[in-house]
C-alpha cells in the first residue's frame, strides 16, 4: 500500500521572520493524482512547492517521497528522477537553441563530455524531436528559444520535462503569464502528458476555473493551513467563496 503513496507530507511548518507561511500541514498524495493547489495570495502555495522542490527546508515536520525522507535525495541527479519542476516562462535559457533546452532534461543522465559534445552535435536527437512533436513544436528545434512566444516557451519547458521523466511534476503557476487560450492549451497538454506517463502533478494555480477543469483533486490553503482537500467535483461554490473572502472589517 505504501508504495502507492508517492508523497507524504507530515506536519510540516515553515515561518518567515514573524510570519507563519505553513503551519503543521499534512496530506498524502497517491501515484498518478493531479492536484491543484489553490488559495489566496500569501496562503503558502509557493512555500509548499519550494519545500517539495527542496529549495527551502521546513522548520519542522517531514516530507516523504516514495517511501524515503526527502532529505535522502541530496544527490540532485537522483532527485531529478523523482521530482521535476515547471514554473513561469523565464525558466529556459533564451540564447540556446530550442533543442538544447529540451535536451537539458537529459543532463542528469549524461556525463560532462557527452553534454558538452551535444552542444555541437545534438545527442539523442530522435528522442528530443519526439518530445517536441508531442508538444506541437517539431519545426522549431533549431530556433533560438528567446524568439519563441510565451506559450511556445512553456511548451518547450514541457518537452524538457518529457525528457527528464520525473515521477512527480511540481508546477508553480505554470500559466500565470499566458493569455486564457494559451493557458488552456498548456494545462491540457500538461495533464494529458502526466496521465500518459503515469506521473503525479502538483500545480499551484490562481484560477479556480482551471483547477476544476483539469485536475482531479483540489487542495485549498488559507493562511498556511489546510482549508479543504476534496476531489474536484465535490468542491462547492460556497467553499470557494469562503476561501477567497477577505477578512471582514471589524
Amino acid at each position: 500500500m505504501s508504495n502507492q503513496n508517492i508523497l507524504e507530507i507530515n506536519q510540516i511548518s515553515k515561518n518567515y521572520e514573524r510570519k507563519i507561511a505553513l503551519s503543521s500541514l499534512s496530506f498524502i498524495v497517491e501515484k498518478g493524482e493531479l492536484i491543484a493547489l489553490i488559495g489566496p495570495s500569501g496562503a503558502g502555495k509557493t512555500t509548499l512547492l519550494n519545500l517539495l522542490a527542496t529549495i527551502l527546508q521546513p522548520d519542522s515536520g517531514e516530507v516523504i517521497v516514495d517511501g524515503k525522507p526527502i532529505t535522502q535525495y541530496a544527490d540532485q541527479k537522483k532527485r531529478a528522477k523523482k521530482i521535476g519542476i515547471i514554473r513561469q516562462q523565464f525558466d529556459l535559457v533564451g540564447q540556446l537553441a530550442v533543442i538544447h533546452n529540451v535536451l537539458a532534461g537529459r543532463l542528469a543522465d549524461w556525463g560532462f563530455f557527452k553534454s558538452l559534445f551535444s552542444l555541437f552535435i545534438p545527442q539523442e536527437k530522435q528522442v528530443a524531436m519526439k518530445a517536441l512533436e508531442r508538444v506541437g513544436l517539431p519545426d522549431k528545434a533549431y530556433e533560438r528559444t528567446s524568439n519563441l512566444s510565451g506559450g511556445e516557451q512553456q511548451r518547450v519547458a514541457l518537452a524538457r520535462l518529457l525528457m527528464q521523466k520525473p515521477e512527480i511534476i511540481l508546477a508553480d503557476e505554470p500559466v500565470a503569464s499566458l493569455d486564457p487560450a494559451r493557458a488552456d492549451d498548456i494545462l491540457d497538454m500538461l495533464t494529458k502528458i502526466a496521465k500518459e506517463e503515469h506521473q503525479t502533478v502538483i500545480a499551484s494555480l490562481h484560477s479556480v476555473e482551471y483547477a476544476r477543469k483539469y485536475f482531479t483533486r483540489l487542495i485549498a490553503l488559507k493562511n498556511g493551513e489546510l482549508f479543504f482537500d476534496l476531489p474536484a467535483e465535490h468542491v462547492t461554490d460556497e467553499q470557494l467563496q469562503d476561501l477567497y473572502q477577505l477578512k471582514e472589517l471589524k
Binding site: 522542490a53 529549495i55 540532485q76 541527479k77 532527485r79 531529478a80 528522477k81 521530482i83 521535476g84 519542476i85 514554473r87 523565464f90 525558466d91 529556459l92 535559457v93 533564451g94 537539458a104 532534461g105 543532463l107 542528469a108 543522465d109 549524461w110 560532462f112 553534454s115 519547458a157 524538457r160 527528464q164
Partner: peptide, 14 residues
C-alpha cells in the same frame, strides 16, 4: 533558468 537546470539534475559544470 539556472535553478531550472539544477532541478533537471545538471551538475555545476553542466
Amino acid at each position: 533558468p539556472i535553478l531550472a537546470l539544477k532541478a533537471t539534475g545538471a551538475s555545476r559544470l553542466q
